Amino acid sequence: MEEQDFQFRQLADFMPQLVWTARPDGYVDYYNQQWYAYTGFEEGYGDQSWLPLLHPDDAQHCLDTWYNSVCTGEAYDIEYRFVDRKKPGTYRWFLGRACPIKDKSGQIVKWFGTCTDIDEQKRRAAHLEQLVVERTRQLDEANAQLTRSNEQLQQFASVASHDLQEPLRKIHTFSKLLLEQYAHGLGEEGTDLLLRMQRAVERMAELIRAILNYSRLTASPYQLAPVDLGKVVAETLADLDLIIQEKQAVIELCALPNVPGDRFQLRQLFQNLFSNALKFQPAGGRPLIRVTIQSANPQALAINSSIPVEGKEPAYWEIGVLDNGIGFDGQHRDRIFSMFERLNGRSRYAGSGIGLAICKRIVEHHRGAIAAESQPGAGAHFKIYLPALDS
């Protein structure tokens, strides 16, 4: 028995923790060398109270925990602070653990305990917590700034819808009057300059309307409601009926599902895609627009978008819009969704360069994504990913 006790003390002295043992009644009868080195207590000095070591805020909780364990026989695991003798007036965090050693009959014969220095870990955790608090504050400020920016954007939209467009309307009206009433005196060159001015005014008005639509999408909250995509597409094609007839376009449709979304925004989405398919055609070409539908798994959506996706198949629908137009170089498939990006000269194809950026913003409002595939002269294939109604 003495040999076992000697070996235990050697092992305890070798451990980096403060190690102690106590009798079943809670009286501490042994400390290892690390205890004496840390506390400065004299080895072999009788009843050594922990109270002078404990932080005043931790003392009562520590004592209550220990007395409860002695009474119930339950192990404990607790954090507390011991005074740091090397830095007077400061404390270090420790993790205290104690467990009862029982005989075959289940009676406690000894308590075994350790005190592990965790001060560095606690300080790191406190530092990380402070970083989180600071980061949260920064995010709150950024969100507040974003809110202010959205409000300013809405104010800009109001200005764009009236204050900017009104002068353009006057310029267009006056130039029209000049052409109607004074064209004979302006000569061919003067008439040509007025026509150029009118076209520039029309392009500016179109650009303002496009920016206004984009700003409304940016500032408006997303409203969730069931939308019949079949009706949306039918209404969109009805709006484009004249140009469809003029170009003798062929439209191939399929049955489309209901999806959660905003009816107006989804009409805008298909309006832009169909208009592009009708517009970007080779000279004399007869447009063909095909709409397809299939279920899409989250992996397919993640591949085609940076938007994180959750859910199981068929949580999303893949709606395809294919055309037989002039197409584009596939390396530009991401660039075409940026603001004011044009792959074709304005002299050949009119437009603001914002239509596909609006499409991208709309599908993002609907927790979806949009992708495009194409080759020059081989038409374009747009893939729209929208959540299913029950997702």
Score class of each variant (00 low, 15 high):
residue 369 A to V: 00
residue 284 G to S: 15
residue 268 Q to H: 03
residue 279 K to M: 11
residue 68 N to P: 07
residue 64 D to E: 15
residue 46 G to L: 02
residue 228 D to G: 10
residue 153 L to R: 14
residue 102 K to D: 04
residue 298 P to M: 01
residue 378 A to E: 15
residue 338 S to W: 02
residue 24 P to V: 02
residue 131 L to S: 12
residue 310 E to A: 11
residue 290 R to K: 07
residue 224 L to E: 10
residue 309 V to S: 13
residue 274 F to R: 05
residue 20 W to F: 13
residue 32 N to F: 02
residue 48 Q to S: 11
residue 310 E to H: 00
residue 308 P to K: 05
residue 160 A to G: 11
residue 229 L to G: 06
residue 81 R to N: 12
residue 138 Q to S: 02
residue 155 Q to F: 11
residue 116 T to M: 14
residue 172 H to D: 13
residue 212 L to A: 10
residue 229 L to D: 06
residue 171 I to S: 14
residue 390 D to G: 12
residue 32 N to V: 10
residue 172 H to A: 13
residue 50 W to Q: 13
residue 1 M to Q: 01
residue 312 K to T: 05
residue 240 L to I: 05
residue 190 G to Q: 10
residue 331 Q to C: 01
residue 268 Q to F: 04
residue 108 I to S: 11
residue 348 R to G: 08
residue 316 Y to L: 06
residue 254 C to D: 04
residue 226 P to D: 10
residue 382 F to V: 04
residue 184 H to I: 06
residue 77 D to T: 09
residue 16 P to Y: 14
residue 134 E to I: 02
residue 48 Q to P: 09
residue 320 G to T: 03
residue 376 P to E: 15
residue 79 E to G: 08
residue 283 A to V: 12
residue 177 L to R: 13
residue 89 G to H: 03
residue 6 F to Y: 14
residue 318 E to P: 00
residue 13 D to A: 01
residue 111 W to E: 01
residue 329 D to S: 03
residue 328 F to L: 13
residue 247 K to Q: 15
residue 41 F to A: 15
residue 316 Y to H: 08
residue 154 Q to Y: 12
residue 104 K to M: 12
residue 105 S to T: 13
residue 162 H to N: 10
residue 77 D to N: 07
residue 370 I to N: 13
residue 152 Q to M: 03
residue 341 E to A: 11
residue 41 F to I: 01
residue 183 A to W: 05
residue 19 V to P: 07
residue 348 R to S: 13
residue 248 Q to S: 09
residue 112 F to V: 06
residue 381 H to P: 00
residue 35 W to P: 05
residue 73 G to W: 07
residue 167 P to H: 06
residue 280 F to T: 00
residue 191 T to D: 01
residue 1 M to I: 00
residue 165 Q to C: 09
residue 69 S to D: 08
residue 316 Y to S: 09
residue 266 L to F: 00
residue 231 K to R: 15
residue 52 P to L: 06
residue 247 K to L: 15
residue 182 Y to V: 08
residue 2 E to V: 07
residue 349 Y to K: 09
residue 152 Q to C: 10
residue 208 I to V: 08
residue 320 G to R: 01
residue 236 T to Q: 00
residue 260 P to A: 15
residue 357 A to R: 12
